[in-house]
């Protein structure tokens, strides 16, 4: 009887220990690498104007004190369907450690009320989330979040833009790791 109880207790502990191990935040270096892929963007007016395709390139690499996230997005939207108009957007931000474990702040953060941008990042389990916050000249805020979750072949990206509490854009993309 005792042996059965011991086996059951052991099985219960093993079953519980798996989710506990998964819940741990990955170290920053687990995200370092070069990733490429593409995704689909939906906005609040997608019902009328359709979705847009975009190609993405992300590099996450160490800096002297923290890490850099550099990303480029190529948006194909409008124009001739066989030869759509192309826009390219690139961003590079350095993040530094804070006193909070798994939370990082931008090295160039400025008061968003004075036209600056607040940027911070956090690691939650297998996901690195980067936030950018701005306030426009009428006082309306916008928070963009890039949640990059590690997968077996690279990472999944979910981008959201919230403007004054409303979700105004969402992009979902799948990326492959092309270099360390």
């Amino acid at each position: 009887m005792m042996r059965i109880k011991t086996v059951l207790a052991g099985l219960a502990f093993m079953a519980l220990s798996v989710p506990m191990a998964q819940a741990q935040d990955l170290p920053l270096k687990a995200f370092f690498g070069h990733y490429q892929g593409n995704g689909i963007a939906e906005s609040s007016d997608s019902l009328y104007f359709g979705v847009t395709m975009r190609d993405m390139d992300v590099v996450i690499e160490p800096s002297a004190q923290g890490f850099f996230v550099t990303w480029t997005t190529v948006i194909r939207q409008g124009g001739d369907p066989n030869n759509p108009d192309i826009r390219r957007k690139g961003t590079e931000i350095e993040f530094l450690p804070t006193q909070k474990p798994s939370v990082f702040k931008s090295s160039t953060a400025r008061d968003p009320l004075d036209g600056g941008q607040l940027a911070w990042a956090r690691i939650s389990e297998r996901t690195l989330v980067v936030y950018l916050m701005t306030i426009d000249e009428t006082g309306i805020y916008s928070v963009q979040s890039y949640a990059r979750t590690l997968t077996g072949e690279g990472m999944d990206l979910v981008f959201r833009r919230i403007t004054d509490g409303q979700s105004t854009r969402e992009v979902r993309a799948r990326m492959v790791k092309v270099a360390n």
């Binding site: 909070k100 798994s102 939370v103 911070w120 990042a121 956090r122 690691i123 939650s124 989330v129 936030y131 916050m133 805020y141 928070v143 509490g165």
Partner: peptide, 8 residues
């Protein structure tokens, strides 16, 4: 907050 989530 401590975890890096934001509250508005």
């Amino acid at each position: 907050n401590e975890r890096g989530d934001y509250e508005m």
